[in-house]
């Protein structure tokens, strides 16, 4: 059975959920082989085995993380040349797409980004124009390279051997063009990552100011959710830019999306329309966001949200 290469996303030794999702998809089309760059593979191995990785190609050198994107693409290209895999799957994150793009040039392959599913014959499904149109497409040249949107697949365990295989150790000079001199971690905190979270609570202009975002955070924490924001809120400086959801922000597809004080402009919808369940709290019954709502409350968020938080805390007994 041909291999399917899966580029692991991990922070240190912690395997990100999207990698388990990619493994779940990969199992349907061949033998999943994870590609791991940087340290931590030994510790991450159990998790990869749980989701069916047959092999884990490890390029453990710190150097792989010291330069922007190019070393990973180079490593994958070498593995593609050596093993002729049936496909390469990466997470459709900004960096994942860039790795995929460079790999496509190196291997003369076609590239599909932001897939929300993969069907028979490696036909990828994409949801475009803010979810208005569903497109099915397939790669017609080289090795199919598919970037899959995080949170679009339910990860299902299925044991694999996760045999560790040492792969490429050197990074070529050509791949050392852009050097990372420092990583600055800003957002710390306990909340799940926006694109990986199963629940996202977003606040918009209706929240009124930066201080009031504490209310959105409190609701998010009660639900174990990530916090998002509309562009109106990030542009106003009420919440950091990297939490913006929408056309020019993050694309999210959680199980539950809660839009609070957000009108539902088409550019916002573009980033959240594929969420499984959508709840809306807005005082204007005419706000277009209600068109997407599975459940909506027409009311002032400053009375609805505190009551909701109380109810959640009572029900969860905390």
């Amino acid at each position: 059975m041909a291999e399917i290469l899966v580029l692991a996303e991990h922070s240190g030794e912690t395997v990100k959920k999207v990698t388990c999702e990619l493994l779940t998809l990969a199992r349907r089309f061949g033998e999943p082989a994870v590609v791991w760059t940087g340290p931590g593979a030994e510790a991450g191995r159990d998790r990869l085995a749980e989701f069916g990785a047959a092999k884990v190609y490890v390029a453990a050198g710190e150097e792989f993380d010291d330069y922007v994107v190019a070393p990973k693409a180079e490593l994958l290209a070498a593995l593609v040349a050596a093993g002729s895999p049936a496909a390469v799957l990466v997470a459709s994150t900004p960096e994942g797409r860039e790795v995929a793009a460079r790999l496509a040039v190196k291997t003369g392959s076609g590239l599909i980004t932001d897939a929300v599913g993969i069907g028979d014959g490696l036909v990828a499904e994409q949801s475009i124009f803010g979810g208005a149109i569903v497109v099915k497409s397939r790669v017609t040249a080289g090795t199919p390279i598919i970037a899959v949107r995080p949170n679009a697949t339910t990860p299902e365990p299925s044991p694999g051997a996760a045999e560790i295989v040492a792969a490429g150790t050197d990074v070529s000079d050509a791949a050392k063009g852009a050097r990372v001199t420092e990583r600055v971690v800003q957002e710390g905190g306990e909340r799940p990552e926006l694109t990986e979270a199963s629940i996202v609570v977003s606040g918009g202009r209706g929240v009124g100011n930066a201080e009031n975002f504490a209310l959105i955070e409190k609701l998010a924490d009660a639900l174990g959710a990530a916090v998002g924001a509309s562009r109106a809120a990030t542009d106003a400086g009420w919440y950091p830019h990297q939490f913006q959801v929408g056309q020019t922000g993050k694309m999210v597809s959680p199980q539950l999306y809660l839009a609070v004080g957000i009108s539902g402009a088409i550019q916002h919808r573009a980033g959240m329309q594929t969420s499984k369940t959508i709840m809306v709290i807005n005082k204007d019954a005419e706000a277009p966001i209600f068109e997407l709502a599975d459940f909506g409350v027409v009311g002032d968020l400053f009375s609805v949200v505190p009551q909701l938080i109380d109810e959640i805390q009572q029900r969860s007994g905390s």
Partner: peptide, 26 residues
């Protein structure tokens, strides 16, 4: 290097339940 096999408009979402807050919205 890729081709579109098919495309279709996404079926519209089913209309949800909308309630007005009468002090019990939360």
């Amino acid at each position: 290097a890729s081709e579109v096999v098919s495309f279709a408009k996404r079926p519209p979402r089913q209309a949800g339940t909308i309630v007005k807050d009468e002090g019990d919205g939360g």
